[in-house]
Design a protein around this nucleic acid. Sequence first.
DNA 1: GTGGAGTCTGCAAGTATTCGCAGTTACGAT
DNA 2: ATCGTAACTGCGAATACTTGCAGACTCCAC
Lengths: 140, 140
Amino acid sequence: MKESIDLTSKLMAQGYRLTPQRMMVLSAIQKSDNHISAEEIYAQVVAGYPCVNISTVYRTLELLKRLDLVTETDLGGGRVRYHPADKGHHHHLVCQECGRIIDLGETVLASLGNRLHREYGFRADLKHLAIFGRCADCQG
Amino acid sequence: MKESIDLTSKLMAQGYRLTPQRMMVLSAIQKSDNHISAEEIYAQVVAGYPCVNISTVYRTLELLKRLDLVTETDLGGGRVRYHPADKGHHHHLVCQECGRIIDLGETVLASLGNRLHREYGFRADLKHLAIFGRCADCQG
DNA sequence: GTGGAGTCTGCAAGTATTCGCAGTTACGAT
DNA sequence: ATCGTAACTGCGAATACTTGCAGACTCCAC
């Protein structure tokens, strides 16, 4: 696994350690092919290492987020989900009627990002964004 | 106050009642000129009517939201704020460095909304949206 | 190998919000 | 007037997450 070497150096460079807990959180995220919630990560970690605390999972997620190893998507109503950063960015259209989630290519919001930068000098973090509304099937 | 007559009929039309609690929640939102949190609404309501419960405030907010009397903006990290619907829609650029909130005109996202509808058949609810990133002063 | 500084973790308490329940209240029908 | 149904409320518990604290571990210098 060259990922973990890469990861170790990334952590070391900033004075952090690669603990078993952190490895397991990261591997849980890598294993899941779509977005995963903190609870689900916790469940997976506990399965292989029972004495970990949920707050450690949250703290690890925050750290990985800061290091740009995972990105977080707020799907509203307190449901936050995580995704490995190296699997590409994308956005979500969340239907508030049927709960369906439509993936949106990274490029769709690029022009918005440019405009915000031009007009407001604002560097928008458009890695993962959720936009709420109603999908084609739920209108009327 | 012709608002409350309007409100009463709006509620009645769907089988709801206009209770003192609901009036106070709505008036607290109307009084505040910018966005207000649920806690702040609760504090104002309790000041004039001490035996109201915080969960009633949340339930009322949900109802008013459904009736399009207030809109809600999720400023991330569980901080949700409310705003009367009749005072116009707008969006927010939230600086994650200094916490500054820049207001964005309603029109800036109109073209995005159109595009989502054209390409995905998705009716985006772009009444209040928060976009995270870094403001001009906090870059570098 | 000893000591110290700093990181990391588990625990328990706190925050913001939601939910189920049971009692109260209002309104329409009789 | 009174009865039934449905809305509404307060309460307390649950959820999802965050935070402060104290102890444990690691790395580095000596």
